[in-house]
Lab assay of single mutants.
Amino acid sequence: TKIIYHMDEEETPYLVKLPVAPERVTLADFKNVLSNRPVHAYKFFFKSMDQDFGVVKEEIFDDNAKLPCFNGRVVSWL
């Protein structure tokens, strides 16, 4: 699974690849690859589809939650 993530106000996003199927990747999986960053200091928002509003940034805080996936990749903002 490819996860593209944006940090603070930085213009260029980062990319990490996880050896987990897109439909199975969790917030804990993502946090594990960010071990060099203080993950407890961040809120995690993900590109998600809402039936009422369309594409939104959804906050996910449960480490066991599966991450929303679009075209085989996850897009996140920290």
Rank of each mutant, 00 (worst) to 15 (best):
T1E: 03
T1A: 01
K2L: 14
K2C: 11
K2Y: 10
K2W: 12
K2S: 10
K2V: 12
K2F: 15
K2H: 11
K2N: 15
I3W: 00
I3Y: 02
I3F: 02
I3E: 02
I3S: 01
I3K: 02
I4Q: 09
I4P: 00
I4R: 04
I4F: 06
I4M: 06
I4E: 15
I4L: 07
Y5E: 05
Y5A: 01
H6K: 09
H6C: 08
H6W: 13
H6V: 06
H6Y: 12
H6Q: 04
M7L: 13
M7V: 13
M7E: 05
M7W: 08
D8M: 06
E9K: 08
E9T: 10
E9Q: 07
E9W: 05
E9Y: 07
E9C: 11
E9L: 09
E9M: 09
E10Y: 05
E10K: 07
E10F: 05
E10V: 11
E11M: 06
E11C: 06
E11H: 08
E11V: 11
T12A: 12
T12D: 14
T12I: 09
T12K: 15
T12L: 11
P13N: 03
P13V: 11
P13Q: 13
P13M: 11
P13S: 13
P13L: 05
Y14K: 14
Y14N: 15
Y14G: 03
Y14Q: 15
Y14T: 11
Y14C: 12
L15W: 14
L15D: 14
L15E: 15
L15N: 07
L15R: 12
L15C: 14
L15M: 15
V16H: 00
V16M: 06
V16G: 01
V16L: 10
V16Y: 03
K17Y: 15
K17S: 14
K17T: 13
K17F: 11
L18Q: 01
L18T: 08
P19E: 12
P19S: 11
P19N: 10
P19Q: 11
P19D: 14
V20D: 01
V20L: 10
V20C: 08
V20R: 02
A21S: 11
A21D: 10
A21W: 03
A21Q: 07
P22E: 03
P22I: 04
P22M: 01
P22R: 04
P22A: 05
E23W: 07
E23Y: 04
E23A: 08
E23K: 00
E23N: 13
E23R: 06
R24A: 13
R24M: 11
R24S: 13
R24L: 09
R24F: 07
R24Y: 08
V25I: 12
V25A: 09
T26W: 02
T26R: 08
T26G: 01
T26F: 00
L27F: 02
L27D: 00
L27G: 05
A28E: 05
A28T: 04
D29P: 02
D29K: 03
D29Q: 05
F30R: 02
N32M: 08
N32Y: 05
N32G: 13
V33L: 09
V33G: 13
V33I: 09
L34R: 00
L34K: 00
L34I: 14
L34A: 00
S35I: 10
S35G: 13
S35L: 14
S35C: 12
S35R: 12
S35A: 11
N36G: 12
N36F: 13
N36S: 11
N36C: 10
R37S: 06
R37C: 11
R37V: 12
R37T: 14
P38V: 12
P38A: 11
P38K: 13
P38F: 15
P38Y: 12
P38T: 12
P38H: 13
P38R: 12
V39N: 05
V39L: 09
V39G: 08
V39R: 06
V39Q: 10
V39H: 13
V39T: 10
H40R: 14
H40G: 10
H40Y: 06
H40A: 10
A41F: 11
A41G: 10
Y42N: 04
Y42S: 02
Y42P: 02
Y42V: 06
Y42G: 02
Y42K: 01
Y42D: 00
Y42M: 13
Y42E: 05
K43G: 00
K43Q: 08
K43S: 09
K43N: 05
F44N: 04
F44P: 03
F44K: 02
F44A: 02
F44G: 00
F44R: 04
F45C: 01
F45N: 01
F45K: 02
F46Q: 04
F46Y: 06
F46H: 00
F46D: 03
F46G: 02
F46K: 01
F46M: 00
F46S: 02
F46E: 01
K47C: 13
K47N: 14
K47S: 10
K47F: 07
K47P: 02
K47W: 09
S48Y: 12
S48A: 11
S48D: 09
S48T: 14
M49T: 14
M49D: 14
M49N: 15
M49H: 10
D50L: 06
D50P: 10
D50Q: 11
D50M: 07
D50A: 12
Q51F: 04
Q51R: 11
Q51S: 13
Q51L: 09
Q51D: 11
Q51T: 12
Q51G: 14
Q51P: 13
Q51E: 13
D52E: 10
D52K: 15
D52W: 06
D52C: 09
F53Y: 08
F53L: 14
F53W: 11
F53Q: 15
F53H: 12
F53S: 15
G54V: 12
G54K: 15
G54E: 14
G54M: 13
G54S: 15
V55H: 11
V55N: 08
V55D: 12
V56M: 15
V56N: 14
V56P: 08
K57N: 10
K57H: 12
K57D: 06
E58S: 12
E58W: 04
E58Q: 15
E58V: 14
E58P: 00
E59N: 08
E59T: 00
E59Q: 09
I60F: 00
I60K: 01
I60P: 01
I60T: 02
I60M: 04
F61I: 08
F61Q: 14
F61T: 15
F61Y: 09
F61N: 09
F61E: 11
D62Y: 06
D62L: 08
D62W: 03
D62A: 07
D63S: 08
D63Y: 05
D63M: 04
D63N: 09
D63G: 07
D63C: 09
N64E: 13
N64S: 09
N64Y: 07
N64G: 07
A65P: 02
A65K: 05
A65W: 01
K66I: 11
K66S: 07
K66L: 12
L67S: 01
L67R: 03
L67M: 01
L67V: 03
L67P: 04
P68C: 00
P68Y: 00
P68Q: 02
P68F: 00
P68M: 07
P68A: 01
C69Y: 10
C69I: 14
C69G: 05
C69V: 13
C69M: 15
C69A: 10
F70G: 05
F70H: 10
F70N: 05
F70T: 07
F70I: 08
N71Y: 04
N71D: 08
G72I: 01
G72Y: 02
G72Q: 04
G72C: 02
G72R: 03
G72P: 02
R73I: 13
R73T: 07
R73P: 00
R73N: 10
V74F: 09
V74A: 09
V74N: 03
V74G: 02
V74W: 00
V74T: 03
V74I: 07
V74R: 04
V75D: 08
V75L: 12
V75M: 11
S76A: 12
S76M: 03
S76R: 01
W77P: 00
W77S: 01
W77F: 09
L78E: 05
L78G: 03
L78A: 04
L78F: 09
L78C: 08
